[in-house]
């Protein structure tokens, strides 16, 4: 090599080395990054679908009502009418798919009720609450049917 760069051969080689490394990096990047990365934003679009694949535990009220329309009917007009079935009977997605596969929980007729209705100053004052004296340890269901508590015991 002649001319002004005659003594810069080592610098040119270093520069070539850097360019080479950069090209290798670009190839690696092209090979390893999913083709659709960044389609909707800075993430892998496949992650959207991956987030939808989880199996359900809770079937949702509509699935319950499909078969148990009688219960739905009995709750109409009650303060408990809008509570989801699985709030008390536990997650029932497997039951909804195959009624024999999973049995609904039948909650304890006193302890469970107190989970919501035990006296607690942090609860809204308008919400029905009972102190320890109320009903003297009798099951709540003696007087209040759980599906429509203000209508007396379950018939």
């Amino acid at each position: 090599m002649n001319g002004p760069l005659r003594h810069a051969r080592h610098l040119i080689r270093v520069a070539a080395l850097f360019v080479g490394l950069f090209v290798v990096f670009l190839f690696a990047k092209a090979a390893l990054v999913p083709k659709d990365f960044g389609l909707y934003g800075h993430y892998r679009p496949s992650a959207l679908a991956a987030n939808t694949t989880r199996e359900l535990s809770y079937a949702g009220r509509a699935a319950c009502v499909d078969c148990h329309s009688d219960v739905e009917e009995s709750r109409k007009g009650s303060k408990h009418a809008r509570i989801g079935c699985e709030a008390c009977h536990g997650p029932l997605a497997r039951h909804a798919a195959d009624p024999g596969a999973q049995a609904p929980v039948k909650p304890d007729p006193r302890a469970f009720c107190l989970g919501c209705h035990a006296q607690n100053v942090a609860r809204p004052a308008t919400f029905k609450q009972v102190d320890a004296e109320h009903a003297q340890g009798e099951p709540c269901s003696t007087c209040h049917g759980p599906h429509a508590p203000e209508k007396g015991p379950k018939p």
Partner: peptide, 23 residues
């Protein structure tokens, strides 16, 4: 929290909303 993305994309509500007794 994924806002129960696997549920809301199927037309269901989230698990927490499903069981909330007072709305």
């Amino acid at each position: 929290c994924s806002l129960c993305y696997h549920r809301i994309t199927k037309g269901l509500t989230t698990a927490c909303c499903e069981v909330c007794p007072t709305g």
